[in-house]
């Protein structure tokens, strides 16, 4: 293994983060890309489960944190989402410009002096060739070679198995966050906390209510992403800034105003949690605060409560 360590010093770390299971077309693309990278002794290829589903203290994130030097990450996420998921888990760097980034995304986060993290969105292209070409381009640019703990064997990728289940939690884009702490005040589940600098952080990601994107809507800067949400503006599409979103008709199509929608989403999630805690015969959890806003919502779905 001594020889492997020497070689690692001149390698570029490439991580392919697989999609959640069950997407056969996606698996085919993943396999083709890995096939195209096979035997490349200038790369250190590692395969991980879906980046968004990795536990902070699991082997996947441990591995990512252990990578020094430049890093290429291929995920089924917007580069912006992938970058901030990594950032929240202590994998820091600057976002390297790639084919996956929209031209409009000029302000890539991070400092010029930092190592580069190149995030490639696997949803961008149906064929492996553009990704392989882009990895070649980056490999020719990369100045900081990888220091990778786990080496690949005979040019074959290193697979890190981590049992994962689909997760759902907010991801904060700190290049947009205005530090108003609206999210902290708004969320009833205690998902958000603050760090030593009084900036919001996602403190209890798994306390988040699956499917509830309410804090993303309430954020005045559009800084909160839910990478698995159907609306690109919420999932982290960098081309859609809060200022040029398409019209959102949700308030009309739910016959209510935006605050009511967010309130209703929050309340619904709370009710769901109460149902679940009743089912598991746990202690009764706190009831939603009844205020004028809730009364407005009640008018819409008067079946509630």
């Amino acid at each position: 293994m001594g020889a492997g360590k020497n070689m690692a010093n001149s390698k570029l770390a490439v991580v392919l983060s697989k999609d959640r299971p069950g997407q056969s077309e996606h698996e085919i693309l993943e396999r083709k890309i890995l096939g195209g990278l096979e035997g490349r002794h200038d790369l250190e290829v590692t395969v991980l489960p879906h980046l968004y589903d990795l536990a902070n203290d699991g082997p996947g994130m441990e591995f990512l944190r252990s990578v020094g030097g430049d890093l290429v990450v291929l995920t089924w996420l917007y580069p912006r989402s992938a970058y901030w998921v990594l950032d929240a888990n202590g994998v820091k760097g600057r976002l390297g410009p790639t084919i996956s980034l929209a031209e409009e995304e000029i302000d890539v986060p991070g400092n010029p002096g930092e190592r580069a993290i190149w995030c490639l969105d696997l949803r961008n292209q149906k064929r492996p060739d553009p990704f392989l070409k882009e990895i070649n381009r980056i490999a020719s640019l990369a100045v900081e070679p990888a220091t990778v703990a786990a080496g690949q064997i005979n040019g074959r990728p290193n697979w890190i198995d981590e049992p994962t289940a689909p997760r759902w939690y907010p991801v904060i884009d700190f290049s947009r966050c205005g530090n108003c702490l609206e999210c902290l005040n708004f969320c009833l589940f205690g998902v958000f906390g603050t760090d030593a600098d009084e900036r919001p952080i996602v403190e209890q990601p798994d306390a988040c209510r699956s499917g509830c994107p309410a804090c993303s809507r309430i954020c005045p800067e559009g800084a909160i992403m839910f990478p698995q949400h159907g609306d690109p503006a919420i999932a982290g599409d960098p081309r859609i800034s809060p200022k040029d979103l398409k019209l959102d008709l949700s308030q009309l199509f739910r016959d209510s105003d935006p605050l009511q929608i967010a309130e209703a989403e929050r309340r619904r999630a709370l009710e769901e949690r109460e149902r679940q805690s009743r089912q598991t015969a746990e202690k009764p959890s706190e009831l939603p605060r009844k205020g004028s806003l809730d009364d407005l919502v009640d008018r819409i779905d008067d079946m509630d409560l």
Partner: peptide, 26 residues
Amino acid sequence: LAQRLLKGQSSGRDAGAGGKPASDPA
């Protein structure tokens, strides 16, 4: 109301999805 809502969105986010609450719900 619908017009006000839609115009508000297209000229910013005043009446849009990111509208600030009038009062702190907590």
